[in-house]
């Protein structure tokens, strides 16, 4: 394919333009811009936009980020799934493919997509007020059991990833019955925690970092298997007293099922180059995610494994609808 490209470029570029969409063009993916559907706003959107920008530098055509929010990702998934499997429509996806499906908001699951590459990982963080005196999850559990007062934990809405993580932590601490999940949207949980209306909040680390450094809030733990580079002093939840609690959210790229292998390979290579670029690594540090490239095969295995785990968790919580 490379030789063909070179031949075309040197010899018959003009002819190719005139003749247009012949057989050569099909081998020459992509011959028109690739649309990357973005499912969420805020930082997920920014990372997606940056990724598209960087991938464009490694492809003959641009990757264009297009925002299709709504329904916790369901709207965008449905759009991409309904498009032809030719590689011109891809989705900036995440574990939300599993949560929306099992939550009953999407008529198809992850098998409706062909994985392209895993791009990044994000963990969630559990935070408390510094003046609470709680240093670890064990402290929280002991204090709640001693006082008999329910723990008010703020996270995003029911069925969201932060809510599932909240319930997983609580279950591990034996506090499932002794806590109230308070749903907030628009990332308001940190303020509510600062103001004292909550006892703990479970959100993305970036929302707590500045307060953690300023000493008003304390991040008790992060949910990954290992500590994260931006917060080297913060223990994992396993270290902090929840032995079974590891949850990581991945983000990656996928295309409708049946997308040709050579197209997936081309996109995978561009994605790898983007993730390994300096610009992406810098953004990761400040926005608060970890670049974690994995090829399409490994990514596919991860999606299936996580899907089973999330299904099990949602079943336990009574959130599984299908």
């Amino acid at each position: 394919m490379t030789r063909l490209t070179t031949t075309l470029a040197t010899g018959a570029a003009a002819l190719a333009l005139v003749v247009g969409q012949g057989t050569a063009a099909r081998a020459d993916y992509p011959e028109r811009p690739v649309e990357m559907t973005i499912l969420f706003g805020s930082t997920a959107q920014t990372i997606g936009q940056l990724l598209a920008e960087l991938m464009s530098q490694h492809l003959p055509q641009r990757v264009v980020p297009v925002s299709r929010p709504g329904g916790g990702g369901a709207v965008g998934y449905q759009y991409v799934q309904s498009q032809p499997a030719d590689g011109y429509n891809i989705v900036w996806n995440s574990n939300s493919i599993s949560t929306t499906f099992h939550g009953g908001n999407l008529p198809f699951d992850h098998t409706a997509f062909t994985p392209i590459a895993k791009i990044s990982e994000e963990v969630i963080a559990v935070a408390v007020r510094s003046d609470s005196g709680w240093e670890s999850l064990t402290d929280i559990a002991e204090a709640v059991k001693a006082s008999g007062q329910p723990l008010r934990v703020g996270a995003s809405g029911r069925g969201s990833f932060t809510h599932l993580a909240t319930e997983a932590v609580l279950a591990d601490l034996g506090l499932s019955e002794a806590a109230i999940h308070v749903p907030y949207d628009e990332g308001r949980a940190p303020v509510e925690l600062l103001a004292g209306r909550l006892d703990a909040a479970v959100q993305w680390p970036g929302q707590f970092v500045s307060h953690h450094q300023a000493g008003t809030l304390r991040i008790v733990c992060v949910s990954g298997a290992a500590r994260i580079p931006s917060l080297p002093d913060v223990p994992t939840c396993v270290e902090a007293g929840a032995p079974n609690m590891t949850m990581t959210m991945w983000r990656g790229l996928a295309a409708p099922a049946g997308t040709p292998a050579e197209v997936v390979t081309a996109l995978e290579a561009a994605a790898r180059a983007a993730v390994e670029s300096e610009a992406f690594r810098e953004a990761a540090g400040t926005i608060g995610f970890v670049p974690a490239f994995a090829d399409h095969a490994a990514f596919g295995e991860l999606i299936a494994r996580d899907d089973a785990l999330l299904a099990e968790l949602m079943e336990e919580l009574g959130l599984k609808q299908q």
């Binding site: 930082t43 920014t46 940056l50 970092v209 307060h211 450094q213 300023a214 400040t286």
Partner: peptide
Amino acid sequence: SALLIHGLIPGPM
């Protein structure tokens, strides 16, 4: 998001 990408994390710090 734009502030974050330029390394400026809003908050007390």
